[in-house]
Amino acid sequence: MTLLVVEGLRVGYGKVEVLHGIDITVGPSEIVALLGSNGAGKTTTLRALSGLEPIRGGGVTLGGTSLVGVPAHRIAAMGLAHVPERRRLFAPLSVEENLKLGGYLMRDKPAELKQRIEIMYGLFPRLAERRLQLAGTLSGGEQQMVAIARALILKPRLLVLDEPSMGLAPLIVRSIFGIVRRLRDEGMAILLVEQNARQTLRIADRAYVLENGDILVQGAASALAQDPRVQAAYLGGVAAA
């Protein structure tokens, strides 16, 4: 049973159309990677899914319910959590306040929310030490942990991650990818946008390669890693050296 179904999605800014009708599916217990060069439309896709960009055409359903025209705050309530590019924490707020805002939609159940925040501190012990520290003063890796924890509080059905590895040292990237894997193994559906193709194809189950607003190739991650078209268009050049 597929959770997220994207059919013929078209999105644009002003006169420019960025996505020309793309199809994507993501099921439970699956990591789906969306790869592609900058400007291909990866971030735009994610922003359209979570309601931050208006959809011009095509359909998006989450668990059978259409997301087209639904405002972002309602989509969050429907079980889609989006960790945006560059993390976008509330820098002048404390770690704890950031996590509380992740549970904004369960503010009528404070006891349960508190318990879930404690679970996140268990998952990221470094955040527990820094719970009263302002989020803007954390290191890049710690900020990414807050961003992911903040998205997990509501126990989303679909977790959307936009370049979680950006600017992080490889050691931190590995531990973040490790957590993504654990979430997948526990049944969560994950849509992952990444620049870092080699590493991403290693943890993903399936992948799509986006180029200039169209899906160029799709398939099992292991097959895509070997696909000569992908190697030429994406992994080629420096990365193959």
């Binding site: 879930r116 126990k155 531990s175 490790g178 979430l183 526990e186």
Partner: peptide, 23 residues
Amino acid sequence: YLGTEEEVEDDGSLGAPILGAMA
């Protein structure tokens, strides 16, 4: 810095369940 770049991360099996812990 570099870590061991070519190695696949392997801490996936470690630790208690994340979602399972949430009511």
